[in-house]
């Protein structure tokens, strides 16, 4: 059995005692090396889940473990945050220093890495996100996509096992979105970093290995993109988009054409349409 890097067992979380819980009895395990998308509209509990998975919040009920360490125990706090890095939505609000180099160093400084070891680690992290040439720039002179890549480099420098990205592309333009997604995809593929990709964009989710859909604090769907997106009716009832090609497949099947439910992107749909009689 594969190792579970992030695990939630019957987890509930409420921001205030009286308030309705943001998460209700969620159980899930994220396996090492997996790239999982989490979908759901605002208020579905996605962001709360992200903050529970790296110990920023401790669950109100249930148990969260990161690499086997219980997030409710104080002794593991810093190890957990190092092991499961978190990237946030707003690129402007997570960079601390006014020079890229110093920002990437921030986590290293906090975890007490010796000064002489830092430059090599910083360069390696920036190279991994393709931003090495910007090492001496000020963050406010960079594009949104570039800022997010710096934020990712800052996490990478701490050598995490898992990367949790909480709508990291929501505020970016298509180019920036593509940049950031490609970088994360490559980190997952080449360095084996486990990724939890929280998003509103179906086309991004379609490129992950596993898709989890949240609604009203619960995990309501969990499977491969194919399994999840083929349930168009259910997705619509959750007020989520259906990828355009999936929607077209439904229309064509309704007209009696024999189109496979696996066709979710343009290429495979073209193949299906050309093939069928």
């Amino acid at each position: 059995m594969e190792e579970l890097i992030l695990q939630a067992e019957n987890v509930s979380y409420a921001y205030e005692e009286e308030a309705a819980p943001a998460l209700r009895d969620v159980s899930l395990g994220i396996r090492a090396g997996e790239m999982t998308a989490v979908l759901g509209h605002n208020g579905s509990g996605k962001s709360t889940l992200a903050k529970l998975l790296n110990g920023l919040y401790a669950p109100t009920a249930g148990k969260v473990t990161v690499c086997g360490m219980d997030t409710a125990l104080d002794e593991y706090t810093w190890q957990i945050r190092q092991a499961a890095g978190l990237v946030f939505q707003n690129p402007d609000n997570q960079l601390v220093a006014s020079i890229v180099r110093d920002d990437v160093a921030f986590g290293l400084e906090n975890t007490g890495v010796p000064s002489e070891k830092m430059p090599a680690i910083i360069e390696k992290a920036l190279r991994a996100v393709g931003m090495l040439e910007f090492i001496d720039r000020a963050p406010h002179t960079l594009s949104g996509g570039q800022k997010q890549r710096i934020a990712i480099a800052g996490i990478l420098a701490m050598r995490p096992r898992a990367l949790i990205l909480d709508e990291a592309t929501a505020m970016l333009d298509p180019k920036g979105r593509q940049e950031v997604f490609s970088v994360v995809e490559r980190l997952n593929r080449e360095k084996g970093i486990t990724v939890v990709w929280i998003t509103h964009f179906m086309e991004e989710a379609a490129r992950c290995r596993r898709v989890i859909v949240m609604d009203q604090g619960k995990c309501v769907m969990d499977g491969t993109p194919r399994e999840v997106f083929s349930q168009a009716e259910k997705l619509r009832s959750l007020r989520l988009d259906v990828p355009p090609m999936v929607a077209l497949g439904d229309l064509l099947r309704a007209r009696g054409l024999n189109i496979s439910r696996d066709a979710m992107d343009v290429e495979s749909m073209a193949g299906e349409v050309l093939k069928c009689q």
Binding site: K51, N54, L56, W78, R81, Q82, G85, L86, F88, N93, Q94, V96, R101, D102, A105, F106, G107, L108, E109, N110, T111, G112, V113, P114, S115, E116, M118, P119, I122, A151, G154, I155, M158
Partner: peptide, 19 residues
């Protein structure tokens, strides 16, 4: 929140990039 997620916990035990 972002600083906490990056293990910031005040000045104690902190090393510095610039020597």
């Amino acid at each position: 929140m972002a600083m906490e997620a990056r293990c910031y916990h005040g000045g104690r035990g902190r090393t510095r990039l610039r020597i």
